Simulated assay, not measured.
Amino acid sequence: MLGNFRYSNPTKLYFGKDSLDNLKGELSAYGANILLVYGGGSIKKNGLYEDILRILSDCGKNVAEVSGVMPNPTVEKLYEGCKAAKEHQTDLILAVGGGSVCDYAKAVSVSAYCEEDPWEKYYLRMEDVDNRIIPVGCILTMVGTGSEMNGGAVITNHESKLKIGHVFGDNVFPKFSVLNPVYTFTLPKYQMTAGFYDIMSHILEQYFSGTDDNTSDYIAEGLLKSLIHSTRIAVKDPENYEARSNIMWIATWALNTLIAQGKSTDWMVHMIGQAVGAYTDATHGMTLSAVSMAYYRYICPYGLDKFRRFAVNVWEVNPEGKTAEAVAEEGLIRMESYMRDLGLVMNLSELGVTQEMLPGISEATFFMNGGYKALTREEVLKILQESI
């Protein structure tokens, strides 16, 4: 492995069917005022909301709520959460939901006591936190983002057509997260499979970078093989606990910073996908799946050795008697077939993107330089055109 790095992850995880039993013990470390944040109300239908309120009441907590956190949390919703957090003098933000709710909670945690506009400070200027941070705990109901064990927080500004993620330091990581795979069983198939691809994309963004013999790449390949195996089971049997538990654990390790160590990392699929999301408000994982194949075929010649390795080690392509180009392409063909089998969105038009939007999406794309090809604005536009 090349380079120097510091690794720390302070988040405590409780995993399994009985993981919620640990919430009471965690709550004892915080003050009386809890801000409960959640999404569209599915937690009220499955009984989780009542279970959590019962625990909070037993612990003598004063609870305020911010509900209706959308899949792509907006800057307006962020301001609403900041107001609620300050008025309630919040001691702990408890996020119950998927990655968007966890992202939102972290954004509120750093923004509530920010003396400037948090959108300007954290999302446009990308500055570090220098004010009071409200602790966050998470109870996960959807997998994909890894937000339960990282410092990422993505916010959308529809007025400026920007969707931006800020990866904060470990002082913003959730203090604890509750991971019960059963809570993911009732998720609609579209959201479930979008989350599956978000996991895969996270791993690939880190894998497709660097040329050294890197331990992180071996870990990534193992995560990918486990993910492919378990997701094939889960799409046919969504309540298969073994498959869903494996997927939940893979999602956490895909983006808790472990496999980024010693890597430059790419992230251009996410940058393009987030720009698509800013224009369409489409489900995040599907914006990634819609542009991935065009992107990877475009950069493959620049990272041919890694793409060949990907084909052989992940997709089990037999390389004998074949050129590196042929092996790499066969790997991408198998990946594309797998994606179609999951029912993922494979082109931008399915998300409502039109030809007229493409220049704007290209302009809204942020550029990262850690992958095998530093793209130009014109190349991003070409990839978008290939994806539509």
Rank of each mutant, 00 (worst) to 15 (best):
K44Y: 07
I93F: 06
H88E: 13
I55W: 07
V63N: 09
N131R: 14
L53N: 14
K61R: 14
A95N: 07
K44R: 15
N72P: 07
P118F: 02
G47F: 05
E65F: 05
D130K: 14
D58Y: 06
A112N: 04
A64K: 13
N62A: 11
A107I: 04
S67C: 08
V108S: 09
V69M: 08
H88G: 09
M126W: 09
K106P: 05
I55R: 08
R132P: 06
D58R: 11
G98I: 14
I43S: 02
Q89R: 12
G81W: 04
V108F: 05
H88V: 09
Y49V: 14
D117N: 02
A105D: 04
V96N: 03
D128V: 01
D130T: 15
E127N: 13
A64S: 15
T90Q: 08
R132C: 10
K106E: 07
A105Y: 04
D128E: 08
N62G: 07
E87A: 15
V66M: 13
V110G: 02
C59M: 14
N72I: 11
V101Q: 04
G98L: 12
A64T: 15
T90P: 06
N62Q: 13
K121Q: 01
K106L: 10
W119A: 00
V129A: 02
G99H: 03
G99N: 05
K45T: 00
H88A: 15
K44W: 05
V108W: 03
D130P: 05
K83A: 12
L78M: 13
I52E: 00
L78H: 09
I134P: 06
A105N: 06
D117V: 01
K77E: 13
Y123N: 11
A84L: 08
I43D: 04
L124M: 12
D51N: 10
P73E: 11
P73Y: 13
D51I: 03
S100F: 00
D103H: 01
E50Y: 09
T74R: 10
Y104L: 11
V108Y: 03
L48V: 10
D58I: 09
K83D: 09
N46F: 06
S57V: 09
D128T: 02
V66C: 10
V63M: 09
R54D: 14
V75G: 02
E87D: 14
G68T: 01
D117M: 00
A85M: 04
G41D: 10
E65I: 13
A107F: 04
K83G: 06
V69A: 07
P118T: 02
C102V: 15
Y104S: 11
Q89K: 14
Y123R: 11
G47C: 05
Y122C: 02
G99C: 04
A95C: 11
N72L: 09
N72T: 10
V69G: 05
L92E: 08
C59A: 15
W119H: 00
